[in-house]
Amino acid sequence: MAPVELPVEKWTGKIKEVKLGGNGRKSMVIGGETTLPFLKFEGVLPNKPVIAVEVQDAPPKDWPQALVSAYGDALKDPGEWAKKALSFGAEIIYLRLKSAHPEEGNTGAAEAKKAVAKVLEAVDVPVIVIGPEVPEKDNEVLVAASEVGKGQRLALGNCVEKNHRTIAATCIADGHVAIAKTPIEINLAKQLNILLCDVGLAADSIIMDPTTGSLGYGLEYTYSVMERLRIAGLMGDGMPSMPMLCDVGEESWRQKESRVTTGVPETWGDPAERAINWEIITAISLLNSGANIITLRHPKTIEFLKNSIAQLTQAG
């Protein structure tokens, strides 16, 4: 009997390869795949998805006990925190300059520079720097971060339509990558990429953040928007073919299911186990829909997901 003829799609496009790090810092390339996630029978996946672990510039006020106890005293210093993250298996440090937020301390360029320098000093993996997500404030602290990390190809975010000119200019000047964030909508994601390219940022210096919805809180929208972006990119449209980042850690640990230990239905199950499952299930689902970088928080999740990625990308 004739063997089953496998249905292989002839994609004409390829996900762009984006390099992070370098100039003394460990470098890595993300993206470059020529097929939908992990379909080995169809295309290549030259660079496996990577795990970024979040570090903040000040001790977090709103982290649940499960996380606080996992990181311990390291939370007091961004450098120590980054080292701890590295020991858990972080491949990238995702530094959030949270205290620059007007409501969280409203720190400025000087403090931002300090925090970034500490992290760059402490670890040699690539670093992503995220502002407080208030566009004007982002401009201030990210420009500062950019100078500190000049040449080390950081990723700076979040770049939105409002501040895309400033972030792009900074990235061009200092050789960084922009994290282009849009609200769960394929066209808006594409449009921001086009605008960034139009102001001169190279297409291989953009990572998309399509906005993450965690399990139970809009995961399906993110899932589908990412699948569609991937398909569009593989079909040869250059504009949605940038690698994608999903902020799984923040989104899944924000939810009641990961934080509340009492006063919820018994059917929700053991709180510690549930919180970890919430993070890993969000993470695996978004990896399957095309994430190239996922942020994670809990050491156990990091470990499991690292194994999963290895399994999904092993040769053969």
Binding site: E185, I186, N187, L188, K190, Q191, I194, C197, D198, D237, M239
Partner: peptide
Amino acid sequence: NELTGAIFLPHTDIARFPSVKQILEKTGRQ
């Protein structure tokens, strides 16, 4: 979805407007 794609000049999917793409390429505005 169509609508958000069309709220752009000329369209998010430039492949639908090949002649405009050509003009933009000519004027160097990619």
